[in-house]
């Protein structure tokens, strides 16, 4: 059975997310175009990766989301990365936004993301396919 999220502490920790996730932040694409973070589309990442000489985009499917053992403010997200479906787990703040293909920004706690960053955000769910990066040539 799905477990209910733990109740959050009444004290709100200061946000420690990178500043570029705040609504209105200016992002430069690989071709030099400037866009606000909330206006980014899937194609922006795909086209930027195509231009990049070092980076390529991988599809990372969310396999599992669970609370962190270390803090209720964190979640552990397990991804299946790339064509080889390598298993990679990351521990992130619950409000940390991932970009879901064809959908946009999503986080484990979208209400908190919107509250802290004003970034429009949907709920990250198992099965979502997120954009991640890897190196074009590892050899």
């Amino acid at each position: 059975a799905p477990s209910a999220p733990p109740s959050l502490s009444s004290t709100v920790a200061p946000p420690s997310l990178p500043p570029y996730f705040i609504k209105g932040s200016i992002i430069q694409l690989a071709d030099g175009e400037l866009k606000r973070v909330e206006d980014l589309k899937t194609e922006d990442f795909i086209q930027s990766a195509e231009i990049s000489t070092e980076l390529k985009i991988d599809s990372s499917t969310v396999e599992r989301i669970e609370g962190s053992h270390t803090s209720p403010n964190f979640a552990v997200v397990q991804f299946s990365v790339g064509e080889h479906r390598a298993q990679v787990s990351v521990e992130v703040l619950v409000e940390y936004p991932f970009f879901v293909f064809g959908q946009g920004w999503s986080s484990c706690c979208p209400d908190r993301t919107t509250q802290l960053l004003e970034l429009p955000c949907t709920k990250l769910s198992v099965g979502d396919v997120c954009i991640s990066l890897t190196l074009k040539n590892l050899r």
Binding site: P18, Q28, L34, S60, V90, F98, T134
Partner: peptide, 25 residues
């Protein structure tokens, strides 16, 4: 006097995670 501040510009690749499978063979 308030001097105009330049707006920070962030590269696109900062926004998506670098998920690298651990090298296991």
């Amino acid at each position: 006097n308030v001097e105009p501040r330049s707006v920070p510009v962030f590269p696109w690749h900062s926004l998506v995670p670098f998920l690298e499978p651990s090298q296991s063979g």
